[in-house]
Amino acid sequence: MTGVLVSTTINGDAVQFACPTDETLLDSLRNRVGLTGAKEGCGTGDCGACSVTLDGRLVCACLVLGVEANGREIGTVEGLVEDGKLHPLQEKFIEHAALQCGICTPGFLVAAKTLLEKNPKPSEEQIRYALAGNLCRCTGYDKIVRAVQAAAKEMRKK
């Protein structure tokens, strides 16, 4: 097993960790950095529970190697709170009961944040397609879509 030292930026903080070369970024984040917000629902890029951003692009952390993070910027659900304040998406997810078991929630929040940064006024259909990579088995997506719509509206006010 070959190990490497990785220097990266996670949620704005400089972070170093050592990992085997064949370890996924998801495992590095969870087991070496201690950020367990990203979840492994499938490990094959089919559920989106491990969604993070890599240099601003939405990716599944289970389909990225830990070593690939070297010199790059990672964003996780743990970075959504700014100055102690919840992100409007986080507020609206709670307010609209957009989560039941909550295991998919971190992935949805990261994906929805990426969507709203690109498209501040998405249609229902655009929201549904943008979030199609995130599986939720509890809600039927109804309240999730409504929460994203409400957050978008809130964010446009600011």
Binding site: R30, L35, T36, G37, A38, K39, E40, T76, V77, E78, L80, V81, L86, L89, Q90, F93, I94, L99, G102, I103, T105, P106, L109
Partner: peptide, 15 residues
């Protein structure tokens, strides 16, 4: 439990 679940702090089986 909402706030823990939207911030990634909630601890599930594998956490």
């Amino acid at each position: 439990d909402g706030i823990d679940k939207v911030t990634g702090r909630a601890k599930y089986g594998a956490d």
